[in-house]
Structures are given as structure tokens and as C-alpha cells.
Nucleic acid binder design. Structure first.
Length: 523
DNA sequence: GGATCCGTTGTAGCT
DNA sequence: AAGCTACAACGGATC
């Protein structure tokens, strides 16, 4: 019997999964061993490792994949935590049958690439055939493209268009023709093999049972509050959401434009984003990004739909751009020796400022509402991320972007190494493709609130910053400007019940623009 | 090779 | 009160 280990990393799904499709059609494979290895540093016991919501989302995604493997193939997922080389060694050592293949989905992150290299190195003296599947979590084959002769780092929509044209087969009506694979019908596994792996003593050191994951997930939800874990992890939920947000929302897709959909969450449901909310499913691999692309194509109206870069296709193209850059540019995650990061002299690490920012006590309600939403749910609207990261760096607090990047990385359920670093580089204004440094977001975008009308933004603030729930819309973006009478009536004295602004926003904005300019002069 | 244009999404102040 | 304008002014691509 010929057995293949299928190592799921960024494909926590059975649809559009080239590893499964290959296993189905290959003559060399009789049965599969589906495995997932949780990063050994992903522990709530390790300080600053990973946030509760992020871990929960992963647990739910793994439970869902386990269910899908069971329902469709009668199989199950073996979940481990530990060093991937050791885990895989222990699997191979625990069964008598020959493991003749190891199927790996390609990941471009340094840690993931090193894991795959180590595993390959470890198995080089065996006759195990290692097969890496490219473009599983991206539309483009990242490795192939950056290895092309004369490859140049793209920085604009135009250059991305060209890369898409040169590297993808896209039909005249916009479909990706070389992706989006259906769920295989004939995948086999051997229960006795899986059982003997689980029973093996060496292997059991790393093994986590489904029951354990369920229990951990439940305990974490008790901690966070069930209503706050709004995004349920997993492929089934991802496909439901894809249908609800894209396939059945032609108007939404055709009119998608960032500036028009910037007002955070909906009034009726403060947890529901005004954007697609698909990012956690894409970043964790529960949802194929190729399928998302094709579904957008399916419902779009050729004459009316918005075009890249504003459109949803445009959004996906920027994601690809960040993946290419992050793989190509050395030290992508760093502020030194990074060709995509200008050496700005940020202020010393200011714990008080960083903590106020992280926990949502800056005295700027819009910023605080979004940071509290991130802390509680693991999600924040894209433009909200712009506003808070600009605020922390070149806008107001003049802190190194890496501090904010780390907090995002830990807390966001859609954390994505390439995209997160790329967006921070861009928002901090240090990357070559950045927006100009003198364009500073206003942390109090109150053009409507001065009219004293209820806006989505105002109701969003009231939900996440309950201290201000009685404040009139007119003052809700800058409550410290409200007369004391109104503060009393609103049952919230600024400076006591809610913080005064930790910084003079206009003054710091001006100073920081000057500082940035001075830094550029040094270059 | 110098001028000009453009870049996924700006802000403040005046009328 | 919405809409215009001044501000501030990088750096790469293109002509």
C-alpha cells in the first residue's frame, strides 16, 4: 500500500485544494494521512505569542476540516503541535507501511519556508517523494514569478496588471482558468494506519485530539464571551459567507469602492462588516482566493462594475502585490536593511502611549472604538486599520510601526505576514509605494457629526466605548470639546470617566510632518 | 536629461 | 453647508 502524508498549512479546506486533487488522480497513491501542525510557539502560555481570537479561529477551522474529511471521505485530520520535522519523523516511524509521498502546500513566509526546507532536508536520505504545491493561498505562483529573470518589485496597479497578464490564464470574461478545483470524490484512507499513528508513543507527544481542541475552543469562548467571537472559523462558514457577501450580492460587488464603504460596521449588527469579512477565511486558507476571484467575476456587470484598484478584484491584486514584495524584498518585516523601509527616527518606545493605543484609551473615541473592537473580536475594518496605524506612527504618536505591527499580528484573526507588514510599511509612510507622508488621517472624521445626526460612525463609537453612549453625536468624536453641562447630562466627565486626549492632534500632526521631512532630508 | 505626471482611498479653512 | 482651494511636496515613470 502506498501512502501519502498530506500536510495542510494554508489550505484548511477540501475545495480548490490541489493536494487532494492530485492525490485523487495519482496512480502512486492508495491512501492519505491528513495532518496539520500548529506552530509550537502558538501558546497562550507564551507571552505575546498569539491572541485568543486568533487561536480560536484556528481551532474552529481545524475542527471544520476534520468534519469535512469525515463527511466526504470518511477520514479524519491528525492535529499536532511541535517542530514540524520531528512531528513528521514520528509519523513515518510509527507505521509499518511505506509512506511514499509527502504533499506540502507552498507558503511564502520565512518561517513556513524554513519548516518545509528542514523537513525536506530530514527526508533526503529516504525514498519519500516530496511534492510542493504552488499558488494554494495566492492567485499567482509567487516563487516562480520572483525567480523570473529581470523580475522587478511591483509598486503600482499598472505593474500588477502587467504581472497578471503575463502570468495568468484569464478568460476574456474574467475567469481564472487554471484554478478553483472542485471537491474530489475519491480520496481513500486506511483507518488502521491512522490508528497506529495515534497509538504510537513517540507520536503521541505531539498529538492533540479533536476532543482536546473542542475543549480548548470552548474554554476560550467562555473567556472572550460567545457573542464576541463573531467570525466562526472553518471552510463551511467561509463558503456560506462567500455566498452571502458575493454570490448573492451583485450590487455590492459591482459598486465596491473603498471610500464609499468606509463606515466600519452596519448599524443593525455592530459585528457585521460593511466590507466582505472574508479576510480571516482567506488568510487561514479556509477559503480559496481563486474561488473568491471567480465568484466576483460571475456576478459582475461588465458595464457598471468598479474597476481595479477600487474593485474587489483590485483588492485581491494588492494582496498578490504584497505577497510578491514580501518574498522578494529582504528583511520585509524589519525597519533596517529593508529596501522598502526608509530609516525614519521614531520616538523611543513609549509604554504609556502604546498601551493607551492598544487598549483603546487614547481619548480619541474613533481610534479607541476600533482598538477595543480589535481587542474583543480580532477584527477591524480596513480603513480603521489605516486610521489607527497612521495615528500610532507618522500621524500622532510618532512610535515605530513595528510595535503596532506586532499587536496586529497577535490579535487579528486575519493576520497575514505579507499583508500586515506591507500595510504598516505603507501607512507609516516609509515604503517606496507609500502614500505621501504629509497626508495624515484625521482621527476625528466628524464632518457629519457636527450636524448632530446619527451616523454609522457615531453608533459604532457608542457600542464600543460605552462610557460615551449618552453623548450627543455633535461631540462624540471630540468629547473633551463638549461643555461641562453636556458632559454631566451625558453622564460622562472627560478626564474622569473617559480619558482626555493623550495628545494635541493638530499640533502633533504638524510637528510630525516636519519631523518626517527632516528625516527624508538625511537620506 | 529636465519637466511633468501620477500614485487605491488627506486635511483645514474659507466662503 | 457643500465645495473649493491651499497646503505640503516624495520619488519613480514617462515623455
Amino acid at each position: 500500500m502506498n501512502t501519502a502524508i498530506v500536510w495542510f498549512r494554508k489550505t484548511i479546506r477540501i475545495h480548490d485544494n490541489p493536494m487532494l486533487t492530485w492525490a485523487e488522480s495519482s496512480q502512486q497513491i492508495d491512501s492519505i494521512i491528513p495532518i496539520y501542525i500548529i506552530d509550537e510557539n502558538w501558546s497562550l502560555d507564551v507571552e505575546n505569542s498569539v491572541g485568543v481570537n486568533r487561536l480560536n479561529f484556528l481551532y474552529e477551522s481545524l475542527l471544520d476540516l476534520n468534519k469535512n474529511l469525515k463527511d466526504n471521505f470518511g477520514s479524519k485530520l491528525l492535529v499536532y503541535t511541535g517542530d514540524s520535522s520531528e512531528v513528521i519523523k514520528s509519523i513515518i516511524g510509527s507505521i509499518d507501511e511505506n509512506v511514499n509521498s509527502l504533499l506540502i502546500d507552498y507558503c511564502s513566509e520565512p518561517k513556513n519556508r524554513k519548516d518545509a526546507e528542514d523537513v525536506t532536508e530530514n527526508l533526503k536520505n529516504t525514498d519519500i517523494n516530496i511534492k510542493v504545491f504552488p499558488a494554494v493561498n495566492t492567485i499567482l505562483d509567487i516563487e516562480k514569478i520572483i525567480q523570473t529573470k529581470n523580475f522587478k518589485a511591483p509598486k503600482s496597479t499598472k505593474e500588477m496588471n502587467k504581472i497578471f497578464e503575463e502570468n495568468l490564464v484569464i478568460s476574456p470574461n474574467g475567469y481564472l482558468l487554471d484554478g478553483d478545483l472542485p471537491v474530489p470524490k475519491n480520496i481513500y484512507f486506511e483507518p488502521l494506519i491512522l490508528e497506529s499513528i495515534i497509538q504510537n508513543e513517540e507520536n503521541s507527544k505531539f498529538y492533540i485530539s479533536t476532543e482536546e481542541i473542542k475543549e480548548k475552543n470552548y474554554q476560550l469562548k467562555l473567556e472572550t464571551g460567545f457573542e464576541k467571537s463573531y467570525f466562526l472559523g472553518g471552510e463551511n462558514e467561509a463558503l456560506k459567507r462567500l455566498k452571502m457577501k458575493i454570490s448573492e450580492r451583485a450590487d455590492f460587488v459591482n459598486n465596491f469602492r473603498k471610500p464609499l464603504t468606509c463606515s466600519t460596521n452596519s448599524i443593525e449588527n455592530p459585528m457585521e462588516p460593511t466590507t466582505t469579512g472574508l479576510s480571516p477565511y482567506i488568510s487561514n486558507g479556509c477559503l480559496s482566493v481563486r474561488l473568491v476571484w471567480n465568484e466576483c467575476t460571475k456576478v459582475r456587470n461588465e458595464d457598471q462594475h468598479t474597476k481595479p484598484p477600487e474593485s474587489l478584484h483590485g483588492q485581491l491584486m494588492f494582496r498578490e502585490m504584497f505577497y510578491l514584495l514580501s518574498r522578494f524584498v529582504e528583511n520585509w518585516e524589519n525597519d533596517v536593511d529593508n529596501s522598502n523601509c526608509k530609516p525614519v527616527r521614531w520616538g523611543d518606545y513609549d509604554e504609556e502611549r502604546i498601551r493607551a493605543w492598544e487598549l483603546g484609551f487614547t481619548g480619541f473615541p474613533y481610534i479607541d472604538a476600533m482598538m477595543r473592537q480589535l481587542d474583543a473580536t480580532g477584527w477591524m475594518h480596513h480603513l480603521g486599520r489605516h486610521a489607527v496605524s497612521c495615528f500610532l506612527t507618522r500621524g500622532q504618536l510618532w512610535q515605530n510601526w513595528k510595535h503596532g505591527r506586532d499587536i496586529f499580528e497577535r490579535k487579528l484573526i486575519d493576520s497575514d505576514w505579507a499583508v500586515n507588514n506591507g500595510n504598516w510599511l505603507w501607512l507609516a509612510g516609509v515604503a517606496p509605494f507609500s502614500m505621501p507622508y504629509y497626508r495624515v488621517y484625521n482621527p476625528c472624521p466628524d464632518s457629519k457629526s457636527s450636524l448632530n445626526v446619527e451616523t454609522k460612525e457615531a453608533s459604532f463609537i457608542r457600542y464600543w466605548v460605552p462610557e460615551l453612549s449618552l453623548f450627543p453625536s455633535k461631540y462624540i468624536f471630540e468629547p473633551h470639546l463638549a461643555p461641562l453641562e453636556i458632559q454631566k447630562l451625558s453622564n460622562c466627565i472627560i478626564g474622569e470617566d473617559y480619558p482626555s486626549p493623550i495628545i494635541d492632534r493638530k499640533k502633533s500632526r504638524k510637528e510630525n510632518i516636519a519631523k518626517f521631512k527632516e528625516n527624508l532630508g538625511r537620506l
